[in-house]
């Protein structure tokens, strides 16, 4: 995926809440590249504009899986708390 595609994808995934700006995006891509989490994979010129493509590496995918697991765990814990609260407050409000 190229930089413009990443920005659009992030905007779509966040329901329009997060809009990355190019300076921030390429700073992050620099860091991810040097940590070996993404890698550049080809480039092309479309209508006079340079597009470089980036791909998630295997270590990047592994780290992403770990992060997803951690965030899912957090969300599950929060949901359980919310259910308990709802369960506890139901009789009081009844």
């Amino acid at each position: 995926m190229h930089g413009y595609g990443v920005i659009q994808e992030v905007q779509a995934l966040s329901g329009g809440r997060v809009s990355l700006r190019p300076g921030t995006l390429y700073g992050a891509l620099d860091r991810l590249s040097e940590q070996g989490l993404v890698v550049q994979e080809g480039e092309e010129v479309v209508e006079g504009r340079l597009r470089r493509y980036y791909r998630l590496t295997d270590p990047g995918a592994e780290l992403l899986a770990v992060e997803i697991q951690r965030m899912t765990g957090n969300a599950k814990a929060a949901a359980a708390r919310l259910r308990r609260r709802a369960g506890g407050s139901a009789p009081a409000s009844a």
Binding site: G3, Y4, I7, R21, P22, G23, R51, R52
Partner: peptide, 23 residues
């Protein structure tokens, strides 16, 4: 440089003549 400028131009709506303050 070329890559960043290309992305900025891709993002810019038609008719824009100057960068926004946020950009």
């Amino acid at each position: 440089g070329d890559e960043i400028v290309s992305t900025l131009l891709d993002l810019a709506p038609p008719g824009r003549r100057r960068p926004t303050p946020a950009e």
